[in-house]
Amino acid sequence: MPRSGVEARRRLREAALDLYRERGFDQTTTAEIAARAGVNERTFFRHFPDKREVLFDGEPTLRDALTQAVAEAPDGLEPLDVLLSAFRKAGRVLEETRPFSEPRLALIAVTPALRERELAKAAALTEAVADALRERGVADRLADLAAHTGWAAFHHAAQDWVDDSSRSLDEHLARAFDDLRALSAPSGVPPEEA
Rank of each mutant, 00 (worst) to 15 (best):
E41G: 10
R42H: 11
R42Q: 13
R42N: 13
R42K: 14
R42E: 06
T43E: 08
T43H: 04
F44V: 02
F45E: 01
R46N: 14
R46W: 02
H47S: 12
H47M: 12
H47I: 05
F48M: 04
F48N: 00
F48C: 02
P49M: 06
P49T: 03
P49L: 04
E53G: 15
V54L: 05
L55T: 04
L55V: 06
L55W: 01
F56N: 01
F56L: 08
F56A: 06
F56T: 05
D57V: 12
D57N: 11
G58C: 07
E59Y: 11
P60G: 11
P60H: 05
P60C: 11
P60E: 09
T61H: 10
T61W: 08
L62P: 03
L62W: 11
L62C: 07
L62H: 06
R63V: 12
R63D: 12
D64S: 14
D64H: 14
A65R: 06
L66M: 14
L66H: 03
T67V: 13
T67I: 04
Q68K: 10
V70Q: 00
A71I: 09
A73F: 02
A73R: 00
A73V: 02
P74M: 06
P74A: 15
P74W: 01
D75M: 07
D75A: 14
G76C: 07
G76F: 08
